[in-house]
Simulated assay, not measured.
Amino acid sequence: MSPARETTVDLAYQSLRAQLVGFRMKPGARLNESALAGDLGISRAPIREALNRLIADGLVRFEPGRGFFCRKLSTREITELYEARFDLEAGGLKAALRRAPDADIAAFARDWQQDGTSQNPDPEALIAADEAFHMALARLGGNDVRLTFLQNINDRIRFVRRINLEHETRRRSAHDEHRALAAALTSRDERAALAILAEHLERSAAEVQTQVRAALAHIYEGDIA
């Protein structure tokens, strides 16, 4: 692939990914390659390559004879993604406690003592701050493969996570849990840190169902007369 072609595919991929992560395309909707190409001012070939990449990310599905479709918002999938997220973050936390120098842990704790998760009302800023905290924590474990998987999960749960953080009570509790987790990490108290992380990320089936319904209401609110 030529550099110019690769750049075009990358641009198409990033643009489509941003739309899919934010569900600016309706769940289950068919993705018209020609229309997408027209919107981005490029040919269909890089659009198709970008869509195939997005299949691997879990954001798009392909049905033979029918084409590409936006992923559906599934309660089961979101529940499983939260479970996988906990597994990855718990592994990163344990690795951080084994490997990370005291200075790095202290710097992490200092940076996040005053994070803006509870104060900033902007949903995009809230989700960015929350993701940044958890990615910084995982980065202390020193495993780039784990970070790649975790970032993919973050992208796939972002819209539901955003709905969760729109509630003021949840914003405040998330902020407090971040601070408690940073303190347990500083003390190198693995049991306490894992318990806080488990409570922070735990999602019951009923809670996920509520959040998925709320997310769908947000996605389709413009269609309601």
Score class of each variant (00 low, 15 high):
residue 45 A to Q: 15
residue 95 A to C: 01
residue 40 L to M: 15
residue 75 T to D: 10
residue 123 P to Q: 07
residue 111 D to R: 15
residue 74 S to E: 13
residue 73 L to K: 10
residue 123 P to V: 05
residue 107 A to T: 08
residue 80 E to H: 11
residue 116 G to C: 05
residue 96 A to I: 06
residue 35 A to C: 10
residue 59 L to W: 01
residue 92 G to N: 03
residue 135 M to V: 14
residue 99 R to I: 03
residue 126 L to S: 02
residue 60 V to L: 01
residue 114 Q to C: 04
residue 37 A to M: 10
residue 53 R to K: 00
residue 59 L to C: 01
residue 38 G to M: 14
residue 86 F to V: 06
residue 104 D to S: 13
residue 47 I to E: 10
residue 111 D to L: 08
residue 89 E to F: 03
residue 64 P to S: 14
residue 127 I to K: 12
residue 47 I to T: 14
residue 91 G to E: 03
residue 59 L to D: 02
residue 69 F to I: 12
residue 44 R to G: 02
residue 115 D to S: 14
residue 120 N to M: 02
residue 75 T to C: 05
residue 54 L to N: 00
residue 43 S to K: 14
residue 112 W to F: 11
residue 46 P to Y: 08
residue 81 L to Y: 12
residue 84 A to I: 10
residue 113 Q to A: 05
residue 39 D to G: 13
residue 74 S to W: 08
residue 81 L to I: 05
residue 121 P to G: 00
residue 82 Y to E: 07
residue 117 T to S: 10
residue 135 M to A: 11
residue 128 A to N: 08
residue 37 A to L: 14
residue 43 S to F: 06
residue 58 G to E: 00
residue 86 F to E: 13
residue 110 R to H: 08
residue 103 A to E: 15
residue 50 A to L: 04
residue 89 E to H: 05
residue 128 A to D: 05
residue 95 A to K: 10
residue 125 A to T: 08
residue 135 M to W: 06
residue 98 R to D: 04
residue 56 A to D: 11
residue 123 P to R: 11
residue 131 E to T: 14
residue 123 P to L: 00
residue 130 D to N: 08
residue 105 I to F: 01
residue 69 F to A: 03
residue 91 G to D: 06
residue 67 G to D: 05
residue 130 D to T: 06
